[in-house]
Computed example of a mutant assay.
Amino acid sequence: MPRLIGAVALGCSLLFAGISHLTVARQEFQAQVPPWFPLDKDTVVLASGVVEISLGAALIVLRERRVPVGLFAAGFFVLIFPGNISQYVTRTDGFGLNTDRARLVRLYFQPVLVVWALWSTGAWKELRAALRRGNRRA
Rank of each mutant, 00 (worst) to 15 (best):
P2W: 09
L4C: 00
A7Y: 00
A9M: 03
G11L: 07
C12E: 09
S13A: 15
A17C: 06
G18S: 01
I19C: 06
H21S: 03
L22H: 02
R26S: 12
Q27A: 15
Q27G: 00
A31L: 01
A31N: 01
P34F: 04
P34E: 02
P35Y: 11
P35A: 14
L39A: 11
D40K: 10
K41E: 11
V45N: 11
S48K: 08
S48T: 14
G49R: 06
S54V: 11
L55T: 07
A58C: 00
L62W: 11
E64K: 15
E64T: 12
R66P: 04
V69E: 03
V69K: 06
G75T: 01
I80T: 11
I80D: 03
I80P: 09
F81C: 05
F81L: 04
I85N: 01
S86E: 02
S86L: 05
V89L: 10
D93E: 10
L97N: 10
N98M: 09
Y108F: 15
Y108Q: 08
V112R: 07
V112K: 01
V115C: 11
V115I: 14
V115R: 07
A117H: 06
A117K: 04
L118M: 10
S120H: 08
G122H: 08
E126V: 10
A129G: 06
L131G: 10
R132P: 00
N135P: 00
N135H: 12
A138P: 12
